[in-house]
Amino acid sequence: MASISLGGTPVTTIGELPAIASSAPNFNLTKTDLSTATLADYKGQKVVMNIFPSVDTGTCAKSVRQFNEEAAELEGTKVLCISRDLPFAQQRFCGAEGIENVEMLSDFKDGSFGKSYGLEFSAGGFSGLHSRCIVVLDANGKVLFTEQVQETADEPNYKAALEALMDA
């Protein structure tokens, strides 16, 4: 269980992020076209998972925009923006913002991604939503880097996540 904060109030998650050098847990997430994405779909590519509570909040939206800019420069890498938002809301946001370089994925069906990655809020106003995290994987699905942002309102360390890609 990780201890972080939400608006300065202490909160916890249901577990811990996957360990560095471990195999990332598989997932079944929903794309904006309502098809399913699994970890196996990204085999052979490096992956940056930008995970957050909702694209309808300022910091979450900013992280999607930032990674959209960064992703345009990354070869052999997919940036996955993951939340429990409905795919329709994710698609609407991307259309309005001109987001084209990241893939939006939703854990709305059963929340199994948030549970298996240990990042779901366990209590409070955001209970059931994802905490703000970054998980970077190599082309074989091994965890290279993780960050669980201490204060949910803060942005992740984009530079550290992208540097982990360069070292792989």
Rank of each mutant, 00 (worst) to 15 (best):
A2S: 15
I4W: 08
L6R: 05
G7R: 13
G7P: 12
T9H: 14
P10K: 14
T12D: 14
T13R: 02
I14S: 10
P18Q: 11
I20N: 10
F27E: 02
N28L: 08
K31A: 09
T32G: 03
T32M: 04
D33Y: 06
L34G: 00
L34Y: 14
S35W: 01
A37D: 12
A40G: 08
K46M: 13
V47G: 12
V48F: 11
M49W: 12
I51F: 11
G58Y: 04
C60H: 05
K62F: 04
F67L: 01
N68R: 10
E70K: 03
E70H: 07
A72D: 06
E73P: 01
L74K: 09
E75K: 15
E75P: 05
G76P: 09
K78N: 07
K78V: 08
V79H: 11
C81D: 11
S83A: 13
L86I: 06
F88D: 10
Q90L: 13
R92D: 12
C94Y: 11
G95P: 00
G95Q: 10
G95S: 09
A96P: 08
E97W: 07
G98K: 11
I99H: 02
I99T: 09
M104F: 00
M104W: 00
L105F: 03
S106D: 03
F108A: 02
F108Q: 01
G111K: 08
S112P: 05
S112N: 11
G114W: 08
K115V: 15
G118L: 00
E120A: 10
F121I: 06
F126C: 06
S131Q: 08
R132I: 01
C133P: 00
I134G: 03
V135H: 04
V136R: 02
G141N: 08
T146M: 05
Q148F: 03
Q150F: 14
T152F: 06
E155D: 15
E155G: 14
N157G: 04
Y158P: 07
Y158C: 11
Y158G: 12
L165P: 06
